[in-house]
Amino acid sequence: MTEKSIFSKLDNIDRRILWLIFIAFCSIPVFYPLGLPITVTKPTLDLVNAIKALPDGSKIFFEDDYTPLGHQEVTPECIAIVRLLISKKMYIVFASFYTPEAALWPPYIFNVALSKEVEAANYKYGVNYAFLGFIPGGDTSVSAFCLKIRQVANVDYYGTPLDQLPIMNNFEKIQDFNFCVTSGSTGLAGMLSQMQAPYKMPMVILCMGNDYSNMVRYYQAGAIKGLTSGLRGAAEIEMALNTPGEGMSSMDIVQGGFLLLVTFIIIGNISYFVAKYRSKPLQEGNKR
């Protein structure tokens, strides 16, 4: 009876205890980094290599479309890639088509997260990079943007006419760009159908963790040059480029959380089966 009650108790454990264990487990790496190993997967390596293979000074269109919900996952990926783009003196134009809040991420990346790198590389707004902000319209605006940029965007994020930005003199339509980086969640399918497929635009995707299984088919089919997702993706990019950042520093917490989740599934099932197995003879005995 005592043994049965142990498994019954374990099976019906108060969820607040589980939450406390989870918080404790995730907090340990914050104070004591464990330095768990990070391996770089092939889709991420292909992504990094595709950008590395571009000649210095290439023209990049960077689409970012994620809400604050995806900020923690996707921004570290974007930061890692923008760092690489800056190191290769690329010309970068940012825009978002699906998420109004996404217009705030590029200024954050350049003015806050990578301000030192931007200053060191002598990157100038309007000359080396520009933010077009949010262009409403979803798929339709992507399609119109590809045909004629100024049809859907006449001013940049700060309200400056595009004709006053020297960088924008190089761009009339999407074919004027050499490469596209798509980040986020909401606009991935639209970007693939409206930009990559019709114009054969070389593209890589930085997505959220839950989008990976949907996007992997485009990578398998060769539609995109590379793919990476979530904080793990950021850590892999940083690992591949040997530039430690937010991704690598957060991986211990993510790995710890995932490991605990699997451990809970296993313990939960063991307690369930033991409780079930031990209750059977009792029931049979009662019947007799």
Partner: peptide, 8 residues
Amino acid sequence: ISAAFRAF
């Protein structure tokens, strides 16, 4: 986390 333990 609680679903992993109690429901899966």
